[in-house]
Design a binder for these strands. Structure first.
Lengths: 362, 362
DNA sequence: CTGTTAGCGCCTTCAG
DNA sequence: CTGAAGGCGCTAACAG
């Protein structure tokens, strides 16, 4: 375990020179610097991050605070994708990552702000935490730069950034997709009303309806709080009185619930009712039928968050709101309304071919 | 940001007393201790972990080194489960966790040992790294306690522990399950031969065959390196010449590949050929048909690893090899072999265990 | 039981 | 361009 001292001694300079060399200070003789690096390599020396973090003025560690990871549906692997993205972005510029996973069940939650102080965390990324979380507000009141994933920020706070999917655009595209296919009796299985992503998606849906001169009736908008089971129950109830031609769901999980309700009603997806989702979870490529949905690039969102928070930590200028594009994954759970009836009549045999193989290579 | 100094001053004691109070030293007056805690709470003080880690003799941070997370099949969410388990186990006892994700594609890998030194890591958990990784050996040569997940350890090194699934037992159960259902033409889609888990699973399979007086022919054991696509290709090729009644796959991913090959051959799963897997990935509950497989409890494995490495760091006695139980998930991809059932009906059950049988099916 | 005194390994003024 | 010196916040002997 070589320390900075060893390097300094062997190089015949003082430790402060070594330190400066390693931190890319400009005021070091090129030769000295070179020699130092040489010796460092020889001695297999790398700066101790802990000591560095303790003594240094500027923080180099980023905190990722994620909630709901333990309680969330196991089909839901979004947090992992985000984590991978964050890790990638953090590592790219030699920052350190410290993760803090919140379990909303456990009582003994610790203050996020304290978590940061104790670890000398200089910038943080929050994901999946609720805006009414008291610790969240405490955190916002610190002077630590913070980027939020999928959370709105009306506050014009220079210390707060955000990264989200293009919820509006994607949602608009999704609704348009159905509208183009002549669906007119559409019900929206929304998530949690107060939520930022929900609001954005709803705007997108409405915007698409607007373009067609259509309106969304209140009774055709259901709120299932992003829960598979609640969506199932709501859809089931709805189908007892009405028969729409399509469901737009604001999450894949809810789409699964809806599909279940539709099937239990003795109806077919998509022949009788089309169902589309939002997220593109892994499982959506394996449902029966495969779910047409919006793919969110969670990895990219994580990575962008890391990059953004670094930018803020380094006090560089730049936009503090990043939007990541989505992609419509056209699969088998939605079909044209009316047209498909004709199609079905003329070609019965073709259809069997499509659903057969589950395993596909991308 | 209150520091230990502030608390000491306000409490009218020296900082070392505060330090000792917080570290539960016995030689502190109960009243003093109480007062210190009181003031600490008042000042909202908690010890700075970085400073602690720098100055303390005993290390309190655990490293998780995981490989293959970025390159692995996206259906494969095993690493995430392990991570969650590790996090849980680490947090339970106020250790710190530092993660190190290796991307085998990237050239610029860093030394694991250095990673540990730089962070004052006192114990580490490795997952998914290959035994022929040079950095791995360097790590083993340090005096840092290390627990390996799903890796064998013949070495009787006091600094090395391991946590694995009960690969042998589960595999034996899996084969027995098929054997009981009268399958006799079974092919094994194995993983990577040199791998610990593969060897254990293979032993399990053989053990089950032994109990039935059967043997496994070499040509009926295929090695697909745990790859979905390779398994698909191997199965496809195999089916061109032979027609087994069942496939035992040493991973779910490979089972998907096999199912695909079976279906492409115009055969049905499980009516014509049964297929079973190992892992129980999320997707296995959604394949068509749903995959019968062995569920591994990766969360528990992660948690046990964390607990074990702590035990080693604290130099406590105890077993250094932990085995986590698996569970057979009986779903729809395997069924009884009908022709055998008929045969059996006419003949005596006793004959089943004779040598006749063995020769007949060799 | 408590205080004093060195560090842990590095960064960062401030002189020179 | 380089060196000396004083921390960062805490732990750990060692006296008292």
């Amino acid at each position: 375990m070589a320390t900075i001292k060893d390097v300094a001694k062997k190089a015949g300079v003082s430790i402060s020179v070594v330190s400066r060399a390693f931190n890319n200070y400009p005021d070091i003789n090129a030769k000295t610097r070179e020699k130092i690096f040489e010796i460092a390599k020889e001695l297999n020396y790398t700066p101790n991050i802990v000591a560095k973090s303790l003594s240094s003025k500027r923080q180099k560690t980023i905190g990722l605070i994620a909630s709901g990871i333990f309680t969330e549906n196991t089909k839901d692997t979004i947090s992992f994708e985000i984590l991978k993205g964050v890790y990638t972005g953090v590592q790219e510029n030699d920052y350190e990552l410290s993760i803090f996973l919140i379990d909303s069940f456990k009582q003994e939650q610790k203050s996020y702000a304290q978590f940061c102080r104790d670890r000398k965390i200089g910038g943080i990324i929050v994901q999946g935490i609720r805006t009414d979380d008291p610790y969240f507000h405490e955190l916002m009141d610190t002077n630590i730069p913070c980027v939020m994933i999928d959370l709105a920020t009306e506050l014009d706070n220079q210390l707060i950034g955000s990264v989200t999917s293009d919820n509006f655009g994607a949602s608009r595209e999704l609704a348009s997709y159905l509208l183009e296919k002549n669906h007119r009796d559409i019900v929206v299985m929304a998530g949690t009303k107060e939520t930022y992503v929900n609001a954005e998606r709803f705007k997108g849906t409405k915007s698409a309806f607007d373009s067609y001169g259509l309106e969304l009736a209140d009774e055709d908008v259901l709120y299932a709080e992003f829960s598979e089971h609640k969506a199932y129950l709501l859809a089931k109830k709805y189908l007892q009185v009405k028969r729409p031609t399509a469901f737009i769901c604001y999450s894949d999980l809810m789409a699964y619930g809806v599909m279940k309700a539709v099937k239990e009603k003795g109806l077919r997806v998509p022949d009788d009712i089309s169902v589309v989702g939002f997220d593109d979870l892994m499982v959506s490529d394996f449902t029966q039928p495969r779910l047409t949905t919006i793919r969110q690039d969670f990895f990219e969102m994580g990575k962008q968050s890391a990059l953004l928070v670094q930018q803020m930590m380094e006090k560089k200028e730049g936009t503090k709101q990043k939007v990541v594009n989505c992609e419509l994954m056209e699969r088998d759970s939605a079909t044209g309304w009316k047209e498909h009836i004709k199609e079905e009549e003329k070609s019965n045999e073709q259809t069997e071919h499509t659903n057969d193989y589950l395993t596909r290579y991308r």
